[in-house]
């Protein structure tokens, strides 16, 4: 991570197993191009995404977090994505208080057939985070700890 121009953001993506992960899979089999900056973490449902997962990812050094689920009403578990939908604004409020730009954490609905949208979202997300620059929360936490001691 030498200069800002060569900054490659690190993004953790929580993808629900039924829609978004399938969409990502389809993006692969359809040979769609999207940046390799997002590392997918498969969960059974976007409702499984505990807000602490996002905080943990940031604490571990992620520059952005993407949460993807089925479209509202299409959840394989009937209402799981509604939980994600309700948790997201609360999480954003917490992040705001930490001083983290809200663009770094994004919630998207991607169905199993929307490989094009998946590729687009990852591309956009990568570009947005690249523009925002490194978050380096882990380094800042480390420095904070050192300053205090």
């Amino acid at each position: 991570m030498s200069g800002k121009n060569s900054f490659e953001p690190r993004i953790i993506g929580f993808l629900c197993r039924w829609c978004s992960y399938q969409g990502a899979d389809l993006a692969g089999t359809s040979r769609r191009h999207y940046p390799p900056n997002m590392v997918p973490v498969r969960v059974m449902c976007s409702g499984r995404v505990d807000p602490t997962f996002v905080l943990k990812a940031i604490a571990d050094g992620a520059d952005g977090v993407l949460i993807c689920g089925c479209h509202p009403g299409d959840c394989h578990y009937q209402s799981g994505n509604f939980n994600a939908m309700r948790r997201y604004p609360l999480l954003m409020k917490a992040l705001e208080q930490f001083g983290i730009e809200k663009e770094r954490v994004r919630l998207e609905w991607i169905s199993a057939s929307e490989s094009e949208k998946f590729a687009l979202v990852v591309k956009e997300m990568t570009e947005t985070v690249r523009r925002l620059g490194p978050l380096e929360w882990n380094r800042r936490l480390f420095q904070e700890g050192q300053r205090k001691t």
């Binding site: 449902c45 409702g47 499984r48 995404v49 578990y77 939980n83 948790r87």
Partner: peptide
Amino acid sequence: CKGCGICVAA
């Protein structure tokens, strides 16, 4: 249980 994990997150 279908294993969605909503309860786990909550």
